[in-house]
Amino acid sequence: MTTNTIAAEPGVAKPDPILVVDGLQRTFGGLHAVDVDHLEIQRNTITSLIGPNGAGKTTLFNLLTGFDEVDAGTFSLNGESLVGVPSYRVARRGMVRTFQLTKSLGRLTVLENMMFGAPDNPGESLSGAMFRRWRSAEADIEARSRELLERFGMDHMSSEYAGSLSGGQRKLLEMARSLMVEPDIVMLDEPMAGVNPVLTQSLLEHIKALRDDGRTVVFVEHDMDVVQEISDWVIVLAEGQVIAEGRPEQIASNPIVIDAYLGTQSNG
C-alpha cells in the first residue's frame, strides 16, 4: 500500500483507514492532554507517532485501546465505534497494544507468557477448565507459541521465567506475545526504548515483517533515525494536537516539526 498520493497535512483523509479518530479530547485538571480533531490510520502501513515529552502520545494510546476514558469525541476500528469499549474487548476486536514500561509476566515462563496471549482458549474459562477437554487446543496453542518464539529467536529460553530476561528481551517477548492474539493492528509504545543496538535491528525487522503479514503497526518512537528507516507515515503530536503528518522525508524537512519537536527535544 503506498502513501505517495496522500497530502502531508494534519487530519488528511486516507484510502482504506483502519482507525478513524474524530474530535478526541482528554483533559487532566484543565490541561488538554489530547485534543485531536481528525486522524486516520491507513491499513497495512507502519505509522510512527512522534512528539516531544508530554505531547500526549501515551495518553492517545491509552484512549484508543480502552485504558483511559475520553472526555469527548469518537473513534472507530474497522468502521465500528470503540467509545466506551473496555480494554479487553478492544483487544478482542483486533487492536493489541504493548506498554512503554514492559509488562512481562515475571513469574510465568516465556512459553507461558506466549500461551497466555492466545485467544479463544477453551480451558481458560472456569467451567471450561473444569468440564471441557482443553488439552488438544492447548497443544495447538503451544505449537503456535513455539513457532513464534522461534521466529523471534527466543525458542532457547522458553522455559525461563520472563522476570529473568533482559529489558530488550522482554520488549521482544511482549511484541511476540501480542501477535498470539492475531491482531489486525498493533500499537507499540516505545518498543525500542532501552534496547541494545543489536536487538533494535532485530526488532525493526520484526516490525516490518508485521506489515508484510498484512497487519497495521502504529508505534511511538523518539529516535528519528529509526522513524526514517521504517515508517510509511509519520504523525507529529505536540501539546495533544496533531501538528503535522506526512511521509518521513516530508516530516524531516517540515519547519513546524523542527520548531515544535526538535526545538524542545534539546531540553527534554
Binding site: P86, A91, R92, T98, F99, L105, R107, F116, V181
Partner: peptide
C-alpha cells in the same frame, strides 16, 4: 497467575 503479575498486560491481550 498472569493477572496477579500484571492486570494491564492481561487486559491488553483481551
Amino acid at each position: 497467575r498472569a493477572i496477579r503479575e500484571d492486570e494491564d498486560a492481561a487486559r491488553a491481550l483481551g
